[in-house]
Protein backbone atom coordinates (compact mmCIF):
# COMPACT_ATOMS: atom_id res chain seq x y z
CA UNK A 1 0.00 0.00 0.00
CA UNK A 2 1.39 3.42 -0.93
CA UNK A 3 1.96 6.00 1.78
CA UNK A 4 -0.55 8.36 0.09
CA UNK A 5 -3.24 5.80 0.71
CA UNK A 6 -2.96 6.48 4.42
CA UNK A 7 -4.54 9.36 6.24
CA UNK A 8 -2.77 10.09 9.52
CA UNK A 9 -4.97 10.66 12.55
CA UNK A 10 -3.71 12.59 15.54
CA UNK A 11 -5.55 11.72 18.73
CA UNK A 12 -5.62 14.58 21.20
CA UNK A 13 -6.81 13.67 24.63
CA UNK A 14 -6.32 14.99 28.13
CA UNK A 15 -8.24 15.53 31.31
CA UNK A 16 -11.14 17.96 31.69
CA UNK A 17 -10.02 21.54 31.28
CA UNK A 18 -6.45 20.68 30.40
CA UNK A 19 -6.46 22.80 27.24
CA UNK A 20 -7.16 20.40 24.36
CA UNK A 21 -9.57 22.69 22.56
CA UNK A 22 -7.31 25.73 22.88
CA UNK A 23 -4.43 23.80 21.34
CA UNK A 24 -6.56 22.52 18.47
CA UNK A 25 -7.97 26.00 17.89
CA UNK A 26 -4.44 27.38 17.59
CA UNK A 27 -3.29 24.50 15.40
CA UNK A 28 -6.10 24.98 12.91
CA UNK A 29 -5.07 28.56 12.32
CA UNK A 30 -1.79 27.36 10.87
CA UNK A 31 -1.55 27.27 7.10
CA UNK A 32 0.21 23.90 7.24
CA UNK A 33 -2.87 22.32 8.78
CA UNK A 34 -5.41 23.90 6.46
CA UNK A 35 -6.30 20.49 5.02
CA UNK A 36 -7.27 18.97 8.33
CA UNK A 37 -10.56 17.38 9.26
CA UNK A 38 -11.54 17.51 12.91
CA UNK A 39 -13.64 15.10 14.90
CA UNK A 40 -14.74 16.43 18.26
CA UNK A 41 -16.26 14.18 20.85
CA UNK A 42 -18.15 16.08 23.49
CA UNK A 43 -19.87 14.72 26.53
CA UNK A 44 -23.51 15.56 26.97
CA UNK A 45 -26.34 16.47 24.67
CA UNK A 46 -25.18 20.03 24.18
CA UNK A 47 -21.69 20.20 22.84
CA UNK A 48 -19.82 23.43 23.32
CA UNK A 49 -16.23 22.80 22.35
CA UNK A 50 -16.92 23.02 18.63
CA UNK A 51 -18.12 26.61 19.06
CA UNK A 52 -14.65 27.55 20.21
CA UNK A 53 -13.01 26.16 17.13
CA UNK A 54 -13.22 28.38 14.12
CA UNK A 55 -13.47 26.22 11.07
CA UNK A 56 -16.00 25.61 8.38
CA UNK A 57 -18.83 23.27 9.37
CA UNK A 58 -17.88 20.70 6.82
CA UNK A 59 -14.39 20.38 8.29
CA UNK A 60 -15.90 19.34 11.56
CA UNK A 61 -17.69 16.26 12.72
CA UNK A 62 -19.12 16.59 16.19
CA UNK A 63 -20.02 13.57 18.28
CA UNK A 64 -22.10 14.77 21.18
CA UNK A 65 -24.22 11.92 22.40
CA UNK A 66 -21.80 10.39 24.82
CA UNK A 67 -18.21 9.67 25.58
CA UNK A 68 -16.43 8.16 22.63
CA UNK A 69 -14.69 5.57 24.73
CA UNK A 70 -17.88 4.31 26.32
CA UNK A 71 -20.57 4.06 23.72
CA UNK A 72 -19.43 5.54 20.48
CA UNK A 73 -16.82 3.27 19.00
CA UNK A 74 -19.22 2.57 16.18
CA UNK A 75 -19.89 6.26 15.87
CA UNK A 76 -16.19 6.94 15.43
CA UNK A 77 -16.07 4.53 12.52
CA UNK A 78 -19.19 6.17 11.12
CA UNK A 79 -17.70 9.64 11.55
CA UNK A 80 -14.55 8.56 9.72
CA UNK A 81 -16.67 6.95 7.01
CA UNK A 82 -18.63 10.21 6.62
CA UNK A 83 -15.41 12.17 6.29
CA UNK A 84 -14.07 9.75 3.68
CA UNK A 85 -17.31 10.01 1.71
CA UNK A 86 -16.98 13.78 1.69
CA UNK A 87 -13.38 13.35 0.55
CA UNK A 88 -14.51 11.24 -2.37
CA UNK A 89 -16.95 14.02 -3.18
CA UNK A 90 -14.09 16.43 -3.67
CA UNK A 91 -13.43 17.89 -0.25
CA UNK A 92 -9.74 17.55 0.23
CA UNK A 93 -8.11 16.80 3.57
CA UNK A 94 -4.91 14.97 4.32
CA UNK A 95 -5.04 14.66 8.09
CA UNK A 96 -7.58 14.07 10.83
CA UNK A 97 -7.44 15.44 14.36
CA UNK A 98 -9.65 13.65 16.86
CA UNK A 99 -10.36 15.36 20.17
CA UNK A 100 -11.84 13.18 22.89
CA UNK A 101 -13.76 14.18 25.97
CA UNK A 102 -11.81 14.95 29.10
CA UNK A 103 -12.99 11.73 30.73
CA UNK A 104 -12.21 9.45 27.81
CA UNK A 105 -10.25 6.24 28.15
CA UNK A 106 -8.06 6.19 25.01
CA UNK A 107 -7.80 2.38 24.92
CA UNK A 108 -11.05 1.51 23.10
CA UNK A 109 -10.59 4.45 20.75
CA UNK A 110 -7.10 3.31 19.79
CA UNK A 111 -8.24 -0.30 19.49
CA UNK A 112 -11.08 0.79 17.26
CA UNK A 113 -8.63 2.55 14.96
CA UNK A 114 -6.20 -0.34 14.95
CA UNK A 115 -8.90 -2.89 14.21
CA UNK A 116 -10.58 -0.84 11.48
CA UNK A 117 -10.55 -3.06 8.42
CA UNK A 118 -13.05 -1.26 6.26
CA UNK A 119 -12.03 2.30 5.63
CA UNK A 120 -10.14 3.04 2.45
CA UNK A 121 -7.92 4.94 2.35
CA UNK A 122 -6.77 3.64 5.66
CA UNK A 123 -6.93 6.01 8.57
CA UNK A 124 -3.81 5.35 10.60
CA UNK A 125 -3.29 6.43 14.16
CA UNK A 126 -0.20 8.60 13.84
CA UNK A 127 0.37 9.68 17.42
CA UNK A 128 -1.37 10.31 20.70
CA UNK A 129 -0.98 13.77 22.23
CA UNK A 130 -2.08 14.11 25.81
CA UNK A 131 -2.51 17.47 27.49
CA UNK A 132 -1.72 17.75 31.19
CA UNK A 133 -2.61 20.85 33.17
CA UNK A 134 0.56 22.12 34.88
CA UNK A 135 -1.50 23.59 37.69
CA UNK A 136 -3.89 20.76 38.51
CA UNK A 137 -2.29 17.78 36.73
CA UNK A 138 -0.83 16.11 39.78
CA UNK A 139 -4.14 16.30 41.67
CA UNK A 140 -6.07 14.98 38.67
CA UNK A 141 -3.68 12.03 38.32
CA UNK A 142 -4.02 11.32 42.00
CA UNK A 143 -7.82 11.46 42.05
CA UNK A 144 -8.94 10.30 38.63
CA UNK A 145 -8.06 6.96 37.06
CA UNK A 146 -9.07 8.40 33.66
CA UNK A 147 -6.29 10.98 33.89
CA UNK A 148 -3.61 8.38 34.64
CA UNK A 149 -4.80 6.18 31.79
CA UNK A 150 -4.64 9.07 29.37
CA UNK A 151 -1.03 9.72 30.38
CA UNK A 152 -0.29 6.01 29.97
CA UNK A 153 -1.31 6.11 26.31
CA UNK A 154 0.62 9.24 25.35
CA UNK A 155 3.28 9.35 22.71
CA UNK A 156 3.67 13.04 23.47
CA UNK A 157 2.77 14.71 26.75
CA UNK A 158 1.97 18.41 26.57
CA UNK A 159 2.21 20.35 29.77
CA UNK A 160 -0.32 23.15 29.31
CA UNK A 161 -0.88 26.42 31.14
CA UNK A 162 2.81 26.63 31.90
CA UNK A 163 2.33 30.39 31.64
CA UNK A 164 0.27 30.20 34.84
CA UNK A 165 2.99 28.68 37.00
CA UNK A 166 6.45 30.01 37.74
CA UNK A 167 7.99 26.66 36.99
CA UNK A 168 6.46 23.28 36.38
CA UNK A 169 6.78 21.20 39.50
CA UNK A 170 9.43 18.54 39.21
CA UNK A 171 7.08 16.17 40.98
CA UNK A 172 4.57 16.43 38.11
CA UNK A 173 7.17 15.56 35.50
CA UNK A 174 8.46 12.72 37.66
CA UNK A 175 4.95 11.39 38.08
CA UNK A 176 4.37 11.53 34.32
CA UNK A 177 7.61 9.63 33.73
CA UNK A 178 6.66 7.11 36.37
CA UNK A 179 3.42 6.36 34.56
CA UNK A 180 4.85 6.50 31.04
CA UNK A 181 8.60 6.73 30.68
CA UNK A 182 8.29 6.32 26.95
CA UNK A 183 6.47 9.56 26.19
CA UNK A 184 8.25 12.76 25.30
CA UNK A 185 7.31 15.74 27.42
CA UNK A 186 6.86 19.23 25.97
CA UNK A 187 5.51 22.47 27.38
CA UNK A 188 2.88 24.72 25.91
CA UNK A 189 2.47 28.41 26.74
CA UNK A 190 -0.89 30.00 25.95
CA UNK A 191 -2.05 26.89 24.09
CA UNK A 192 0.61 27.19 21.41
CA UNK A 193 2.68 24.17 20.46
CA UNK A 194 5.42 23.44 17.99
CA UNK A 195 3.87 22.29 14.73
CA UNK A 196 6.48 19.56 14.54
CA UNK A 197 4.71 17.80 17.38
CA UNK A 198 1.81 17.19 15.01
CA UNK A 199 3.40 17.18 11.58
CA UNK A 200 6.95 16.08 12.25
CA UNK A 201 8.02 12.60 11.42
CA UNK A 202 7.15 10.64 14.48
CA UNK A 203 9.66 8.04 15.44
CA UNK A 204 8.29 5.32 17.60
CA UNK A 205 10.86 5.86 20.28
CA UNK A 206 11.37 3.46 23.03
CA UNK A 207 13.22 3.55 26.26
CA UNK A 208 13.87 6.95 27.63
CA UNK A 209 16.23 5.79 30.34
CA UNK A 210 19.13 3.50 30.87
CA UNK A 211 18.42 0.59 33.15
CA UNK A 212 20.27 2.19 36.07
CA UNK A 213 18.25 5.35 35.65
CA UNK A 214 15.06 3.33 35.76
CA UNK A 215 16.15 1.77 39.03
CA UNK A 216 16.92 5.18 40.48
CA UNK A 217 13.66 6.44 39.10
CA UNK A 218 11.51 3.75 40.61
CA UNK A 219 13.17 4.21 44.00
CA UNK A 220 12.36 7.90 43.91
CA UNK A 221 8.68 7.17 43.42
CA UNK A 222 7.73 5.52 46.61
CA UNK A 223 4.99 8.14 46.97
CA UNK A 224 3.53 7.80 43.53
CA UNK A 225 0.12 9.30 42.88
CA UNK A 226 -1.00 6.62 40.49
CA UNK A 227 -0.88 2.86 40.61
CA UNK A 228 -0.20 2.83 36.88
CA UNK A 229 3.48 2.61 36.10
CA UNK A 230 5.86 1.78 33.30
CA UNK A 231 8.69 -0.71 33.28
CA UNK A 232 11.41 -0.91 30.65
CA UNK A 233 12.86 -4.24 29.67
CA UNK A 234 16.25 -4.61 28.02
CA UNK A 235 17.08 -8.08 26.74
CA UNK A 236 20.36 -8.66 24.97
CA UNK A 237 19.90 -12.19 23.67
CA UNK A 238 17.93 -12.60 20.45
CA UNK A 239 14.72 -14.56 20.84
CA UNK A 240 12.88 -16.87 18.48
CA UNK A 241 9.90 -15.35 16.71
CA UNK A 242 7.60 -17.94 18.24
CA UNK A 243 8.90 -17.02 21.71
CA UNK A 244 7.73 -13.46 21.12
CA UNK A 245 4.19 -14.63 20.38
CA UNK A 246 4.18 -16.94 23.41
CA UNK A 247 5.55 -14.13 25.56
CA UNK A 248 2.83 -11.69 24.47
CA UNK A 249 0.16 -14.33 25.00
CA UNK A 250 1.39 -15.07 28.50
CA UNK A 251 1.55 -11.38 29.41
CA UNK A 252 -2.04 -10.92 28.24
CA UNK A 253 -3.12 -14.07 30.02
CA UNK A 254 -1.54 -13.24 33.37
CA UNK A 255 -1.87 -9.46 33.41
CA UNK A 256 -5.32 -9.22 31.78
CA UNK A 257 -6.63 -5.66 31.80
CA UNK A 258 -3.71 -4.54 33.99
CA UNK A 259 -1.56 -4.52 30.87
CA UNK A 260 -2.43 -1.15 29.39
CA UNK A 261 0.21 -0.71 26.75
CA UNK A 262 3.28 -2.48 25.41
CA UNK A 263 5.62 -1.14 22.76
CA UNK A 264 9.15 -1.46 21.59
CA UNK A 265 11.65 -3.27 19.43
CA UNK A 266 12.39 -6.98 19.64
CA UNK A 267 15.62 -8.68 18.63
CA UNK A 268 14.45 -11.72 16.68
CA UNK A 269 16.84 -14.60 16.09
CA UNK A 270 15.51 -15.35 12.61
CA UNK A 271 15.81 -11.69 11.49
CA UNK A 272 18.69 -10.16 13.46
CA UNK A 273 19.15 -7.13 11.19
CA UNK A 274 15.55 -5.98 11.21
CA UNK A 275 14.01 -5.46 14.64
CA UNK A 276 10.37 -6.37 15.10
CA UNK A 277 8.24 -3.41 16.11
CA UNK A 278 5.67 -4.43 18.69
CA UNK A 279 2.84 -2.14 19.68
CA UNK A 280 -0.10 -3.28 21.77
CA UNK A 281 -2.98 -1.54 23.45
CA UNK A 282 -4.19 -3.88 26.17
CA UNK A 283 -4.58 -7.20 24.35
CA UNK A 284 -4.94 -5.75 20.85
CA UNK A 285 -1.66 -5.63 18.95
CA UNK A 286 -0.75 -3.87 15.74
CA UNK A 287 0.50 -6.32 13.15
CA UNK A 288 4.18 -6.85 13.83
CA UNK A 289 6.25 -4.65 11.55
CA UNK A 290 9.92 -5.00 10.72
CA UNK A 291 12.04 -1.92 11.12
CA UNK A 292 14.57 -1.54 8.31
CA UNK A 293 17.50 -1.21 10.68
CA UNK A 294 18.26 -0.83 14.35
CA UNK A 295 17.30 2.62 15.66
CA UNK A 296 19.94 2.45 18.37
CA UNK A 297 23.53 1.25 18.56
CA UNK A 298 23.14 -2.11 20.24
CA UNK A 299 21.08 -4.93 18.89
CA UNK A 300 18.81 -5.78 21.78
CA UNK A 301 15.17 -6.05 22.72
CA UNK A 302 13.83 -2.89 24.30
CA UNK A 303 10.25 -3.01 25.49
CA UNK A 304 8.16 -0.64 27.55
CA UNK A 305 5.20 -2.06 29.44
CA UNK A 306 2.67 0.24 31.04
CA UNK A 307 0.09 -1.00 33.50
CA UNK A 308 -0.48 -2.14 37.05
CA UNK A 309 1.19 -4.79 39.20
CA UNK A 310 3.92 -5.41 36.64
CA UNK A 311 7.27 -6.38 38.05
CA UNK A 312 10.29 -5.96 35.78
CA UNK A 313 12.17 -9.01 37.17
CA UNK A 314 9.03 -11.09 36.54
CA UNK A 315 8.75 -9.91 32.92
CA UNK A 316 12.42 -10.73 32.37
CA UNK A 317 12.10 -14.14 34.05
CA UNK A 318 9.08 -15.02 31.91
CA UNK A 319 10.83 -14.03 28.67
CA UNK A 320 14.01 -15.94 29.61
CA UNK A 321 12.02 -19.05 30.47
CA UNK A 322 9.89 -19.01 27.34
CA UNK A 323 12.95 -18.49 25.15
CA UNK A 324 14.68 -21.42 26.88
CA UNK A 325 11.62 -23.60 26.30
CA UNK A 326 11.54 -22.72 22.61
CA UNK A 327 15.29 -23.25 22.31
CA UNK A 328 14.96 -26.66 23.98
CA UNK A 329 12.11 -27.69 21.68
CA UNK A 330 14.04 -26.54 18.62
CA UNK A 331 17.07 -28.55 19.73
CA UNK A 332 14.97 -31.66 20.30
CA UNK A 333 13.39 -31.32 16.87
CA UNK A 334 16.80 -30.96 15.24
CA UNK A 335 18.03 -34.13 16.94
Amino acid sequence: MKQSEFIPLTLITGFLGSGKTTIIKNLLQREELSKTAVIINEFGEIGLDHHFIETSDEDLVELSTGCLCCVMRGDLQEAIARLLTKREGGWSFDRIILETTGMADPAPIIQSLVLDKISAPKVILDRVLVTVDSVTGLKSISEFEECSRQVAFADILLLTKTDLVESVEGSLEKELMHINNNAEIFKSDFGIIDLELVLGEYKRQTIAFTENEIDKHSHSHSHSHSDIMSVSLYFKKPIHAVALTLFLELLAEVLGSDLIRLKGFVYIKEAPETPAVVHGVQHIFHPIEWHQSWPYERKETQLVLIGRNISLPWVRAILETIEEEVEETTRQNEN
Binding site: V114, L115, G256, H286, P287, I318
Partner: peptide, 30 residues
Amino acid sequence: HPSVGAALKSLALILCPNRKVGRVVFANQK
Protein backbone atom coordinates in the same frame (compact mmCIF):
# COMPACT_ATOMS: atom_id res chain seq x y z
CA HIS B 1 2.69 -29.11 32.09
CA PRO B 2 5.30 -28.71 29.38
CA SER B 3 5.68 -24.92 29.61
CA VAL B 4 5.55 -22.03 32.02
CA GLY B 5 2.53 -20.66 30.16
CA ALA B 6 0.50 -23.84 30.59
CA ALA B 7 1.53 -24.15 34.25
CA LEU B 8 0.51 -20.60 35.13
CA LYS B 9 -2.78 -21.04 33.30
CA SER B 10 -3.58 -24.04 35.49
CA LEU B 11 -2.38 -22.24 38.60
CA ALA B 12 -4.75 -19.37 37.81
CA LEU B 13 -7.69 -21.79 37.68
CA ILE B 14 -6.88 -22.86 41.24
CA LEU B 15 -5.93 -19.55 42.86
CA CYS B 16 -8.13 -17.04 41.04
CA PRO B 17 -10.63 -18.89 38.85
CA ASN B 18 -12.80 -15.82 38.27
CA ARG B 19 -10.03 -13.58 37.05
CA LYS B 20 -10.58 -12.35 33.52
CA VAL B 21 -7.73 -13.21 31.21
CA GLY B 22 -6.62 -11.40 28.10
CA ARG B 23 -6.34 -12.96 24.67
CA VAL B 24 -3.87 -11.46 22.24
CA VAL B 25 -5.43 -10.25 19.01
CA PHE B 26 -3.21 -9.13 16.17
CA ALA B 27 -4.97 -6.51 14.07
CA ASN B 28 -4.65 -6.85 10.33
CA GLN B 29 -4.34 -3.22 9.42
CA LYS B 30 -2.45 -3.36 6.14
